[in-house]
Design a binder for these strands. Sequence first.
DNA 1: TTCCCCTGTACGAATTCCGTAAGCCCTATT
DNA 2: AATAGGGCTTACGGAATTCGTACAGGGGAA
Lengths: 227, 227
Amino acid sequence: MTQILIVEDNADLAFGLSTSLEVEGYEVAVANDGPTGLTAARDRNPDVIILDLMLPGLDGYRVLRTLREEGREMPVLILTARGEEADKVLGFRLGADDYVTKPVGVLELLARVNALLRRARAPEKKETANEKFGSVEIIPSSRTVLRNGSQVALTPKEFDLLLALVRRRGAVASRFELLKEVWGHRTAVMTRTVDIHIRELRRKLEDNPAEPRHILTVWKAGYRLEA
Amino acid sequence: MTQILIVEDNADLAFGLSTSLEVEGYEVAVANDGPTGLTAARDRNPDVIILDLMLPGLDGYRVLRTLREEGREMPVLILTARGEEADKVLGFRLGADDYVTKPVGVLELLARVNALLRRARAPEKKETANEKFGSVEIIPSSRTVLRNGSQVALTPKEFDLLLALVRRRGAVASRFELLKEVWGHRTAVMTRTVDIHIRELRRKLEDNPAEPRHILTVWKAGYRLEA
DNA sequence: TTCCCCTGTACGAATTCCGTAAGCCCTATT
DNA sequence: AATAGGGCTTACGGAATTCGTACAGGGGAA
């Protein structure tokens, strides 16, 4: 979940902003003064900070400078009423990533936050990490699967299905969900397609396919992957 | 040397900007219309683009969109007289990193460009070092490939394709990604172009092209280079 | 010329379908 | 309450079809 921290002493503005951001699917925290904002930034390590400059206790410049001196590199968007060029230049020099002057439309602000997130997250590349269950290891980036260290040849559909199961871990995945996720939104034709591919996965990955210990059937519900 | 491309039809403004940027130690190129700007962006691969929206030939939105569709991810700062929120939102949605409304102070613009550069360069441009797999050695700086120590003649496209594969190492590269990275745009067209060039690479680099050991096919997914 | 990219064809892997067997759940009957 | 049977769900093995990739040759452009 992407976390955004708003450091802003105007409660109304902070509330409006946080609501808009939450609607967009972000998790938002609000701090009303400088010291609280600094602590929150340290504790929560948010993905973006929206920072007011005029704050009680500790002004925004100081908050920003302190964070950067501590080596925290999350994007910071300064949102303030001070529109002098000198202020902006100072803000950027202290390590801000964007500087917006009030008043500003919510849509523009959202767009700017998204732009910062896109840029900051690009290198990270939230690739699905390698997963393991039992003696099986899954490496999504190369689409390979190892069992007891040696490679197992899975067909594309088999691999995608396995991935879909793994992503759910212990939870039940219905045939319909799996169909939708692996085969794409095709009509709800009753087919045994999922079953068949499950069988193949068991055959290739289970020690005893007749008594699966990882890829389990949940009667009337679907399948479940158990570590 | 950090390269900045200015795409701006107002010659005076472009000149003033480029002078200021050069004083700051940047290498600046200027394009006066859309098509020229697009070509320059492709050829020079600048570190930042300052893009006007109202341009002769091809407007800034289109230039930006085309670049992003081609997979070019350099930061783009839109500099324009159009200050409507809808314009800004559109700009960001097309992949802009900043949006500045004329008139703007040179200092602010410099600060914003610097902020973009700082963020974009953080992951440190990994200059593709010499790479090896099997008995093949790749020297990107001279666009040369050696096999068992002797030079192999690759065509430009073949070399670019090989480079794209090498950059991913063990990970799967889809045909679409490769098309985007090596050929640029040309999306949506179902073609065997990638396949054909892969075949050439195998023919020239694999010991037994019929059973490739390095340039592997991943069914339904793409290709993968295995050391 | 060399290089690039398209079209057409063939091969083979992968997916899906079918019929049948086995398993589970519910319920009615003793 | 225990149990046996019916109905529905899932598993299996093989066969047919679909679909993706490899290969060959040729036209077009730089």
